[in-house]
Computed example of a mutant assay.
Amino acid sequence: MINHEQTVKLISDLVSIPSPSGNTDTVITFVEQYLQNLNVETKRNRKGGLIATLPGKNDEQHRMLTAHVDTLGAIVKEIKPNGRLKLDLIGGFTYNSIEGEYCQIETMSGQTYTGTILMHQASVHVYKDARKAERNQDNIEVRVDAVVNNAEDTRKLGIQVGDFVSFDPRVEVLSNGFIKSRHLDDKASVGILLQLIKQIKEDRLELPHTTHFLISNNEEIGYGGNSNITPETVEYLAVDMGAMGDGQATDEYTVSICVKDASGPYHYGLRKKLVQLAEGNNIDYKLDIYPYYGSDASAAIRSGHDIVHGLIGPGIDSSHANERTHISSIENTYNLLYFYVQSEII
C-alpha cells in the first residue's frame, strides 16, 4: 500500500531540514504546508508543535498518534580564544558520535555558517594524547569555515552564545532498500504518518474515531507530546524508532512494538491489540524492551493524562549516532498504522 518512492523522498526532505529541539519552525512549516495541500485541518500549539485532525464516525472517543520532528543538535556554549566554538548538547547522545561531523551554525539574524566538529587535539602530528584524549565538552570544538583567528573574529560574523548548531544528516538511499542518515529518529516516523494521512484523504477512508496527529517538537528533551491531548482521547500511540543493539529483538526490517522502556510497561491491552492487528494482516513485527528510552507517550502519562498509551516504530540501527533503517521496516510500520487507525478503540 505504501508508495516507497514518495515515502523515501519525504523522509529525505525531512532529515535535510535542520531542526534541533528549540529551533523547529522551518520543519514544522514544511509539514504544515504538506498537510494544508491535502486540505487537512491543522493548528499549532504554543510550544510550536503541529496538530492535524481527521474527523471520524465516533467523535466522543478520540485517538491520537504522535511523531516528533525535533532532532539532536547542539548550542554554542562559548566562543574560545582561538575563535572556535565550544558546544552544549541538545538531547541524549555522546560527543564521540559527532566527532568529525560537518555542521551548520545559525545566528539569531538568520545567517548560517558551516563548520566541522573536531577534537581540539585532532592532529596526531602535534598532540601526543590525540588517540587517548577524552571526547567531552572541553576537548570537542567546532572549526568554523571562515577566516577566524580569535574570539573577536568569530563574534564579528554574528556568531554568539546560544546559536543553534545542526549536524549534517548525510542522507543516502541505497538501491537495496537501506536508508542511511542522521535524524531518522524520528523523521522516518513523521514521513510515515504524513503518507498515511495522504492515503486516508486520497482514498476517502472513513475513520471509526476522530483521530489527531501531533507532530511534536520537543521530544528529544522530554516533553514534546504531553499537552494538547483532547479530553475525548482514549488511545495515544507514539510512533518513534525501535532501538537496536545487544539483547534487543528489534531489527531494521520489521515494525517494533515496545512493551516497556525506562518509564515502565506500555498498556498491555493496546499492546495485545497491535500484535493481533499485525498477525491478522501478515505484518512482520518484533516485541521489544528499550532500557534507556522514553517517548512522547510516556511523557503524556507522566503529565497526568488518563489515556491508554502505546509505542511502535521502525527499527533504527545506531540510534542517536549514524542511523540506518530499511524500507521493509518503514513498510511494516506503515501497514500496522494503516490497520490500526481503521480499528475500534479497545
Rank of each mutant, 00 (worst) to 15 (best):
M108L: 12
S16F: 07
Y102R: 13
G304P: 08
T254N: 15
E219M: 08
H4C: 10
D138L: 10
S175R: 12
V259K: 06
R170S: 13
T233F: 01
V124K: 11
G315W: 00
E252H: 07
N23H: 10
I200S: 05
E344Q: 15
A133H: 08
F213M: 10
E279K: 13
L214T: 04
E134A: 12
K57Q: 14
A297G: 10
R302M: 11
E232W: 06
Q137Y: 08
L193D: 04
G100P: 04
E323S: 07
V234L: 09
H68W: 01
R271D: 03
M244S: 02
D261L: 02
I117S: 05
V275C: 08
L207D: 06
I345D: 11
A238K: 00
A67I: 02
N37R: 14
P55F: 04
F93Y: 15
L72V: 12
N82H: 09
A300M: 05
S166Y: 03
A130G: 08
S298A: 11
H68S: 09
I221M: 08
I179K: 01
R135L: 10
L287Q: 10
I221A: 05
V76Q: 04
E331P: 01
V255N: 00
I28Y: 01
V31Y: 02
D70R: 03
Y290G: 02
A188H: 05
S181M: 04
D163L: 02
E99S: 09
D13Q: 14
Y102G: 09
Y223L: 11
Y253M: 09
L174Q: 14
K128T: 14
S123D: 14
T114H: 13
L274E: 01
I283M: 05
I197S: 10
Y236L: 10
L336D: 00
L337W: 03
G315M: 03
G264F: 07
K57P: 01
L174C: 13
P18H: 08
